[in-house]
Amino acid sequence: MLSCSVSGLFAQDGKALIKEINKKFAQVNDYKADVAMKFDLPGIKIKPMRGRVYYKRPDKFRIRAKGIFFLPKDNPMRNIQTLLAKTSSYTSLISGYETIDGKKCAVVNIIPLDPNLELVIGKFWISVKDPLIYMSEITTKENGTLRTRSYYGAYAKMGLPDKIMIQLEMKKFKIPKMLAADIKKSSTKSKGPQKNTGEIYLLLSDYKINTKLKNEVFTGK
């Protein structure tokens, strides 16, 4: 009886926090910002690079940069807002509280109502006072678990981070021997176990919000 009422209270609180988050997101119809990207991906060497990020509600997202770079297949910067906005498609409950960056955060679990959905479970660390998502953990059937860690600054009022770290589970990148350019190299001894998570860091600055971005920005070259 007591546990039911407590979980009911937590579920209530979870929705209230998400509602506040959605209110912040609702202020942003579109934005563009400068982005500095840094990659730490197992089996991949890529230098940091700069570009420009574009977003438009509900789910248009693009990073334009000169050169080749990598983003998670399920991009959390596009998907989280869309996921949280559909409040009728999931149940939410608070499983506990943790402190992140000195802020008390509720750990809000999101469970989709439709079992056929790709999402298995979403976990969001939302600050109780002035709600913002500081951390998230999204588990999907196909792509495993994707974690984010957000840091806020001048644009916190609109729920937009200054820095975001995306951590993703990566299967070991298998390089076909016949395609490796250095076949002359004799078998090198393994330098210890390769890590199975990769991190992508995005530093966002100079946001331009609600500038009525054209759809063409998200298509073409």
């Binding site: 991906l41 940069a65 080749i68 770079f69 297949k73 495993g144 299967k171």
Partner: peptide, 10 residues
Amino acid sequence: SLENTLSIKG
């Protein structure tokens, strides 16, 4: 094998 988790841009 990369494109299971990553999307290659460029």
